[in-house]
Computed example of a mutant assay.
Amino acid sequence: MNKFKSFLVACILVFTISCSKNSSDSDNSDTSVNKSANLLATGDSARDILSNDNFDTLVIEIAYVTGFKPTESAITQFTDYLKEHTFKEEIELVYTELSSPSEDELTLQEIADLETKNRTVFNTGSSLGIYIYFSDAPAEGDDLEDGLVTLGSVYRNTSMIIHEVTVRELATLSSSINEADVETTTLNHEFGHLFGLVDLGTDMVNDHQSESENEDGQLVGDNHCNQMGCLMRAELQFGSSTGKSLQTNSKATYEDGIKSGCVLSGTTVLNLLQQNTAKGENTVDLDAECLLDIRANGGRN
């Protein structure tokens, strides 16, 4: 009888352990997140961002290093810009404060590694997740004295870096613009590439892509707009006095093996803002050609 009781207890114990393991495995699978849809190339989610075909909500994680949180004014103007050009009525902001990585400069590979470590928002259900990192470190290869600075970059379909420390430094160079102006222009320009502009996932209705020389001296499309005054006209340039070889080398150093959809220079943004300020305008808008492209790919305007 005692042997039977011992056998029965052993069976119950084995059954309980087995059920516990199955329950644990099930819980892990339920809470796991498929991140692959957020690891695509710049512009690959353009229509998903612009239209409500597959996602009707944007959840934007604003990850910032302590002391480098973006201004409320810039974020308000940024979300207004998104609502103006997409059909997303629901835009949720998730603020994530992070400690400094304690780096003097950052490459895109290092930025991507930080995203892997810190990102918490991904596509789930009808919500499309976006990650924007506001850094306390400048881009690798920056030289403020020579105008060789990078304000931001997009490097995946839902990933963006804003070098907030450089944004603030640039804003001090002109009495006619402020920190929020530079933040807003940088955010809106880079997100324009996530819209798929120019020819980065959203086809052009009419050809309006500008060209610049590549490392072989050939004129090629540079994924920016050739229309005067357009937000997306901000072609890649690292300062007029530096020359093509330094421009190419600086970009290669910063990208560090990760292809960027756009590396936005401080010189470009400063020029755009100063031109608009001279005309009495505070913001830089998309031109008619970019608006045509957005509408053709499911956007609002």
Rank of each mutant, 00 (worst) to 15 (best):
F7W: 12
L8N: 06
V14E: 04
T16Q: 06
N22G: 08
S23Y: 14
S24M: 10
N34K: 04
K35V: 11
A37G: 09
A37F: 12
N38P: 03
L40H: 01
T42E: 05
S51F: 11
N52F: 07
F55H: 11
T57N: 14
A63R: 09
G67A: 07
F68E: 02
F68I: 05
E72W: 00
E84F: 00
K88W: 03
E89P: 00
E92Q: 10
E92Y: 04
E97P: 02
S99I: 05
P101H: 09
S102R: 13
D104L: 15
L114D: 03
T120V: 07
F122I: 05
F122A: 07
T124W: 00
S126T: 13
L128P: 01
D136P: 01
A137K: 06
G141M: 05
G147Y: 08
L148K: 15
G152S: 10
V154C: 08
V154G: 05
M160Q: 14
I161C: 06
V165N: 11
S174D: 10
I177V: 10
A180T: 08
D181M: 04
T186H: 01
N188M: 03
E190S: 02
G196T: 05
L200C: 05
M204S: 06
D207L: 09
Q209W: 12
S210G: 15
D216M: 12
D216H: 14
L219T: 14
H224M: 02
C225D: 10
S241E: 09
S241N: 06
T248E: 13
N249K: 07
G257K: 06
I258F: 03
C262T: 11
L270E: 09
Q275H: 12
N276V: 06
T283I: 14
A288R: 07
A296G: 05
A296P: 07
